[in-house]
Structures are given as C-alpha cells and as structure tokens.
Design a protein around this nucleic acid. Structure first.
Lengths: 352, 352
DNA sequence: CCTGCCTCCTTAATCAATTAAGACCTTAAT
DNA sequence: ATTAAGGTCTTAATTGATTAAGGAGGCAGG
C-alpha cells in the first residue's frame, strides 16, 4: 500500500500530474471522459483527493483559525462564559467553512511549539495573562490576530467590554441599595494558583488585565460611596468552580463584621457563595446580597449579574478574522448590562 | 515586507538554506557562532521560524487531531455530556502537544470539503447519524479513526457504552418501582428536525445508532415487565434543551392516562420535564418520576440518571489516536451506572 | 490554403521546508 | 608524514500539490 499521489494516478493513465490536478480542482479544464477515468482510477487506488497539507502550502492558506486559551481546555469549557464565546466563534468559522484549531497551552508550561507549528490563517487569543510567552509567539507569526478580553495589544483589534465600568456598575448596584459592608470573591487575577486573602497591592498587581479592570471598577465605585477599600475583605480563588465559590463564601462570611453584600467576578463563583450562605442558614437576599458576572449560569438561580454579549463577541472575532477585510486595530467594546434578580436587596437593619 | 523564508536568511548570511534549517531544528549541527547570527538575522527580519505548513508537508505529520460532531458546534457545546467528553479528549491532545481541529459540519449540508481539506493526523468522529457523507469522507482519508458513541464502523475502534443495556437499566428502575404508565422524551433519534409524537416504526428507523440502541433498551425492559410498548407515549425532540424538555413534558403529561414515569435520554431534557411538572403543580417524585441520562446536569436537581464516563471516553479516544500504537478495531464499552436521586419513587396509588 | 480560435493537455516553476550524503578543513593519533 | 576522526557546512533530492504559459490538433471562416 504505497502512498498514492496525483502522480500515481497520472502515471496509471499516462497523463501529466497537472491534468489530474485539474480534474480534481477545475473540472472544466479537462474532457469529461478523461475526468471520469481519473476519478475511476482514484477510487480504485483509494485516493481521497489532493493532500491537504501540500495544497495548503501551495495555496498559502490553511483553512483553519487558531484559538488560544490561557486555561487548560478542561477548565475553559467548564466556564459557561467561555462556552458562549466559543459558540459564537464556532458559528462564524462554520459559515466560512474553516476549522477551528484549538491550541493546547499546558499550564505554566513555557513550551510554545504548538503556536509555532500551528497550521492556521489567523489567531484568536482569549484571556491571556500579561506577558504570557505564547502571545509573543503569536505576534511573531505575523498573522491576523484578534484578542478577546485580555490583554490589549496595541496595533491589533481587541474585543471585550468596558471592564472598569462593568465592575463599577455591579458594585454601585449594591452600594445604592445601601450596603456598606462589602466582600469580594474573584478568580483569574493571577496565574500563580494562590487561594486566600488578597491585599490591595496584590490585587493591583493582577496579571490578567480584564479582571484587574473589573476590580478597579469595584474599588472606584466603593470609594465613590465612601467605603474604605482597604477594609473590604477580598478572597482570591484559582479555579472557577462552584466549590471554590463556596470556600470563598465561607471565608468571607466568617469575617467580622460580616459582609452584607458579596461581589463575585463569575456566576459560577456566585452560585458557590449562595451555597455557603445556605450552609450558614443565611437568607438571600434578606441577610446577604450576592452579585455574579456574565449572566452565564445565573438565570435559574435568580442571580443578579452583569450580562455581557458572549456569543456576539465570539461571532465578531470570527468575522474580523475570516471576513477578508483587514481588521482595524483598536478596542471594540461590547455593551454590558446589569440584570437585577432575586439575589440582591437592601441590607438588613443594623443591629442596635 | 516581502515574505521571509529560510532562504532569505541564508542569502543574507551567505550560507545555504540547509544550514539555517539546522540552526533552527538541530542546534548541534551548526557552530554556536553561526547559530547566533542566524537567530539575529531572523529576529531582525521578523522571521518566526520554519513555516508550519511546509514543515508538515515535509515531515508528514500535521500536529493536529480532527474532531467531527454531527451537531452545529453551538449545539454541541450546549450539551454538558459533549463538553465532558471534549474535556477528556482535549487533555489527551494537550499531553501529546497536538492541536484539536474542530471541523464544521453545517446541519444538512452535504459539503464535506472541510473534511477533505483538514490538515490532521487522525480523526475522532462523534455521534454521526447512519450514512452521513462526512463519515465516508473521513474513511477515505485513510487516517487513524476512532468513533465515539455512533455509528459503529467495522474495522475501526469504537468507544461508547452498552446503550441497550443502559436504556434497559433506566427503564427497569422505574418498572421495578412499580410504574406501568411510562412516557418517553428523546432527542437525537433522527436528523430531520421532527418534533412531536413518534410511533414505533419511526422510533425503530432512528438514524442515530446510539439513541436507537438506548430506546431499544427502554422497550425491551418495558415488554419484559409486561408493558405494551405501542401504547407508551413517545415524544421526539430535535433540540437538546431545557425548553424542549418542558414542551415534551407538557405533551406527555397531557396524555390520558397520564404517565407516572417519564424516561428521557438526556439530563437537560429531564430538567425540562421537571419544569413542566412544576408548571402543572405535580409533585416529583410523589406523582411523577423522571429519569435523565448522562449524569451531566443532574446532581443539583436531584435527578435520577445513568452515569457514563464522559471524560474517560474522551481521554481514551485521544490515547488511541495519539498513542502511537495502532488501535485495535472493535468496540470498547465503558461502564455505566444507575444513579438514584430524588426524582424517582414508587407511583402514586391508583385512583379507586 | 491560411488564419484564428477552441479545446485539451503538458511543461516547468513554485510553495517552504527537511535531511541523507558528501565536501572541506582542522586536529589528533599512529 | 599519514591517516583517521570530528566538526561544519553544502549539495541536491524530496514532500505533494497548483497554475501560468505554451503547444498540438481540430474546425470554421475568409
């Protein structure tokens, strides 16, 4: 079972390789009769058509879009926000008839060969921490690039929301309800696996730009309302899971004085905080208000959250990369919206 | 900004292309000094390293695994079962340092070019209906193939569960609790978009082998217990969503006599059935028992379901395709397990 | 008969690399 | 001095296709 190429078929039929190529890719350049015989021999030899790699090389297009996540894929797909974004992007790829090449970036691993070796026409980068080596590798490839959420790369299109504004919107909501004792649970600030309390300087040093911005928004709104941010208990997680949220919830709710409102930067985390409240027999929203983020898992739980256009962002990323027109660099900010549900209410009256 | 290749660098330095290639791929074949200069010039010219496509062609490997879903990706990722499987596969791909090329197969579309043109080393096919043209295309490529869930292709490895046994296990559970008036809601039997009642001959003609098998299991267990299957109301859906489940639930619960137990082939559908029951003020499990499938979204809702090893199946698929050793053809069946939670109980006493 | 025009096919350059084999020079051992 | 052994680089074949340009033959019109 030697390898079968165009040449094999050409030799069998006593024609040139070029003719066989035309038979496959431009039927009208070849007589119907000869084309029939070409297909016949191809079938007989089990030839499935021109080798895609060779074709890609000659044509200069790969027929695929590269996708980079910071997280292990197993994590990425556990996050409903990522799934929503992915759906939008996948639909765009479908429409364009190109594949989506998901590139593995093992956690903490500095090996970036996958990026170097990826057979793609463009890259979509999602949520990479500042200074991640894979990003340099992507930029070195000199292919069209779109960055989603973070980090902003001057000279390339960026898609996301106005994070500080969205964060401020969430915080202002509870502040306007009258809350003054806040607590915060956030995931995805740093890449170092830290779990636990985080002071202001550590918060500010977060390596993920989007989450840093979201937090800045929290702080700005809090200070605007006269809350001393340095006193706001801030619990950091390394995994975006319900269980992690519960852990943060227990830590925050054990603080003295106990927060009356907890801000989280993902809905999944917020669900975990609700679990913690339930564990302690606290009434939500009577005794505790909880705000999520993304409106990805919030509806059933009646969670107040910030909605962002996940799928639209994915679709737009696809359009920019596959649409042919060279994308304009600069930030494209998508709208966000506060969705008030049943997890927030005014704080309980102060104990006398 | 002309194209920069190995040759460009070679010319600049007055060395041969081969030398530059060695500098990149086999540092010890070239003097340290020259290698340094090569890298210097490469940097200066903005050369990111050998062209991946040309490399792939020459080396004969693509560095990617092709993945085929029957569904639009947007659907596929809405299903927690698919996400779980995908996580397992992605982890295996990560370990092997290869990418995962997701191939778009627009619904009903007969265009299979994406499969023909995919630059991959192997294919993983998930849940394709019988006779889907993309499968022929995949087989024609003569690359390693693993099929997951369906359809079974003689001569290639197959991974999945014993569907008839799993279906029978689910049905037997409610039958043994004493239920005799069953109802069934299933998605993914046919590819024709049909929504509504389905008679036995249509059920039997389902084009998705796995779901057909699962249904066969339901029927076998029912008949074993003396239930006349032709009388069992059977509602078919075309989308696996909670809303679809609710629709099926309403249809089934309006049947006369009303079923006391409803079997569904996905957890998501089961959640929708629970919604319908809640709409009607029916107590679950007091007045109605509901069984899901996959244990993918069941835990929080207290759903009785069949657990299957989603991630393990994905991981094994990856291992078979990337492990180097040629995979043995034939079926590999993974274990399944009945998880009894709070959605099933004995039927209410017959009205006198 | 000559010319022009089709149709159908071939020639040959090209895409961007990898790598076995060989050339050339230096150094070390016999 | 001779030979062998390394180290470093070059030559040239190879991977499997695409496609512009050109040639051969047939046919119609002047």
């Amino acid at each position: 079972m030697a390898k079968v190429t165009l040449q094999t078929i050409a030799d069998r039929l006593g024609v040139s390789r070029a003719t066989v190529s035309y038979a496959f890719s431009r039927p009208d350049q070849v007589s119907a009769e000869l084309r029939r015989r070409v297909m016949e021999v191809a079938d007989e030899l089990g030839y499935a058509g021109p080798n895609p790699t060779a074709r890609s090389l000659r044509l200069g297009r790969a027929g695929a879009l590269g996708l980079l996540f910071s997280e292990t894929l197993a994590y990425a797909f556990a996050d409903p926000y990522a799934v929503g974004f992915f759906q939008g992007l996948a639909t765009a790829a479908e429409d364009a008839g190109v594949g989506l090449l998901i590139l593995p970036l093992p956690r903490g691993d500095q090996r970036t060969e996958p990026v170097r070796n990826a057979v793609v026409d463009a890259f979509c980068v999602v949520s990479l921490p500042d200074g991640h080596p894979a990003l340099d590798e992507v930029l070195a490839r000199k292919l069209p690039v779109v960055v989603v959420d973070e980090p902003y790369v001057p000279g390339h299109p960026f898609l996301g929301i106005d994070e500080p504004a969205a964060g401020a919107l969430a915080a202002r909501h509870v502040l306007e309800l009258g809350h003054r004792r806040l607590g915060v649970a956030m995931v995805g600030l740093h890449d170092d696996g830290h779990i636990g309390w985080s002071d202001v300087s550590r918060q500010r040093a977060a390596t993920f730009e989007a989450m840093r911005g979201r937090r800045d928004g929290y702080q700005a709104a809090a200070e605007e309302a006269g809350v001393d941010w340095a006193r706001v208990p801030f619990y950091e997680l390394s995994r975006n899971s319900r269980e992690a949220g519960r852990q943060a919830g227990h830590a925050l709710l054990a603080a003295n004085p106990r927060p009356t409102a907890i801000l989280t930067n993902t809905d999944v985390l917020a669900l975990g905080v609700l679990d913690a409240a339930a564990d302690l027999g606290l009434d939500v929203p009577g005794e505790l208000s909880v705000v999520g983020f993304s409106d990805s898992a919030a509806q059933d739980a009646g969670l107040t959250t910030i909605r962002q256009a996940k799928q639209e962002i994915g679709a737009e990323a696809g359009r920019l990369l596959l649409g042919g027109a060279p994308a304009r660099p600069g930030r494209v900010l998508f709208p966000h919206e506060l969705i008030v549900r049943a997890s927030t209410a005014p704080p309980p009256p102060e104990p006398p």
